[in-house]
Design a protein around this nucleic acid. Structure first.
Lengths: 209, 209, 209, 209
DNA sequence: CATGAATGAGGATTCATTCAT
DNA sequence: TATGAATGAATCCTCATTCAT
């Protein structure tokens, strides 16, 4: 037995260790990327030996893949919460805000995700063809309905989504740049951002008579 | 060291070879990142031997740094072209468009830049403290003037810039994601994007009476 | 150590498990050699955990040694059945046939044995100095008696034995080569071989007037 | 460039180093098998660093495969020298003798080859389907002709070849066993063997009126 | 200018084995 | 009797880089 990979469920200690490894891996991967990260570094961060780490995972890439798959859920959550029955403009603005909060609270997760996409999504293509696409399609259809009903301005719904992703994630993914250009506390930064993005998307979406 | 690094200028053949190496390095770095790229791969792409490559550059990192420094100019160019004497809204929209064209024509450069920022700008901090900051400050000041004069809507000028960067670069940097979610020809993609972004920033910036 | 190695005899369950391990080990060792085989593989083949396996044996080498010691008996059996009172040529030919049947029915055992000898008999030297040598010496003496009496042709009795071993075991040990050169069902193969070897050794041994 | 593997030909130093590596690898592989051998050991035997060794070869298995391919030629040589126009019995006996000399002079090569076959010929199947099969087929046809003409006794020609291989190689491959059973100088051993095998195959092949 | 040769440092895995339960 | 957890020792291999020519 090389490890607990065979079992269907995980014991308490397994769950704990795996969580510790995920946390460490997130830290290291977000900082150095998949290739740049070393098992040694992850193991050190997780306060265990490299071999013990390999007892729980099949290898570096396996950790990466499992980790990034988990992030997908995190990423989709704010989207899932859009209420079709809500007030359209408010719903979109609330989504923007949720995404922004996510960036604020999970910047490393966001950067890890960004790295994967920048490299061409080599590890999670299947997620895009499955759950991700389904959720996006649902949302696009909803936005289209609202546009057709004249409840929000008619623009390309895909581009609208892309824009929201770009804007909200930017504050996490490119924070190094932002901090060099305009140093600021994180709280101020995100308060500002929320104000700005709310203004922008309200201006865009509210239908003028 | 017998290499050309001692001289003040470069001979014709040196310039040629360096250009070939830069082109190859851009290709490889954009695809695999700094750590993921191997000298071997760059050398192969540039059609020369690894050692010959090292005759022209001090090492992998040296290539990367010189390369990314060059990109800064490219990146700043659209910003430099904003005309303080022009019509404010039109000037900003033209800037958006120039950035978008840049993304369309230089996606690898954009991704390389994004990688560097994602990793925390470890190699070009000095550029941000120098030319980059100067240009950004100038632009922010100009935007502020226009806002104070009521010529464009008053928002945080930094956030406005961040938003433009995020939106325009997103189509290059995250194209893998975009293509998975909504496959499209590049031309259509960017035509759509231009329409959307123009709509959005006009809605944002035009001052309502 | 809580294992069963302390006791003088083995309980029923111990005997069963040990047999299962021997069977699995034979399979794996014959396929990959001592070094090439992994405890993991043997454990999987025996349908138990690596640790449980180590509860019954002191280690990989211990399994190997015990296993190969058992094979010695198998290997010597045909030799022991030579009847000093029998008709000499017939006795030798019958021995050839028994060895051939052994090869046919126990090819993995034969290969395992061959591997050990090829590596220089690192694990069972003592057997050669003990029971094996005794049995061989007995047989050589018997053959010499028959030769002295003119009942079989006078050749070097050791070389005769070596030849019989080489010829009969060849069909098991080098079956991969044989099958590549001349594919055939196992039954045909051994029927052919028996005919050929009988012809050869009869031609060799029968004394011409 | 990771090494000289790309070129069509080899420079002097390359040829020398490769030869040294082959010699060392033969020694180590013959003693420990493919899995049991370590690059470290081969490098030490060849008096060079592990990395230098890897500069010349792609890896352990690559060395093994190239080495064993070379052995094939050695192995086939005695077979190629059988003269279709010669006296049949003498030709076969001369072949037996050549194979025996080969075993005497190249025991490690013989053992290495034996190891590969014992493991099921995992690395040189293609050789069997190509040059090896051709040469064997040619010889079998020749033997059959001689048998049909009544010049040697009619037996299965394949079995005859297998027998010659088994007998001659046995003295190299299983020398450890032989030496334990009957210690002897190498010269005596092979002189004995030659006498015995000549007797046996002459007895087998000479046609009785 | 160019390249063949060589190497040191690092990094991922494998695997037998120990230990506690 | 059985197994989950952990580890030390090897071992293969990659890769940037140096050196000599």
């Amino acid at each position: 037995m090389t490890g607990p990979k065979t079992a269907g469920g995980y014991s308490r200690i397994q769950t704990q260790k795996r969580a510790a490894i995920f946390a460490a891996a997130l830290e290291i991967f977000a900082r150095h990327g998949l290739r740049g990260a070393s098992l040694e570094a992850i193991a050190a961060e997780a306060d265990m030996s490299k071999q013990n780490l390999l007892y729980y995972f099949d290898g570096k890439e396996a950790i990466f893949v499992e980790l990034i798959q988990q992030l997908t859920d995190l990423w989709l959550e704010p989207l899932a919460q859009i209420d079709p029955a809500g007030e359209p403009v408010a719903e979109v603005l609330a989504y923007v805000q949720r995404k922004l909060v996510m960036s604020q609270n999970h910047p490393r997760e966001s950067r890890l995700f960004a790295t994967e996409i920048l490299q061409g999504v080599p590890h999670i293509k299947h997620l895009y063809e499955g759950p991700m696409k389904a959720m996006v399609d649902r949302t696009v259809a909803l936005l289209q309905t609202w546009m057709d009903a004249g409840q929000i301005r008619a623009v390309d719904p895909h581009d609208l989504l892309f824009s929201i992703w770009a804007n909200t994630q930017h504050y996490a993914d490119f924070s190094a740049q932002i901090n060099l250009i305009k140093p600021m506390t994180r709280e101020e930064r995100y308060a500002n951002a929320e104000r700005f993005l709310t203004d922008m998307y309200r201006a865009l979406l509210v239908v003028q008579d």
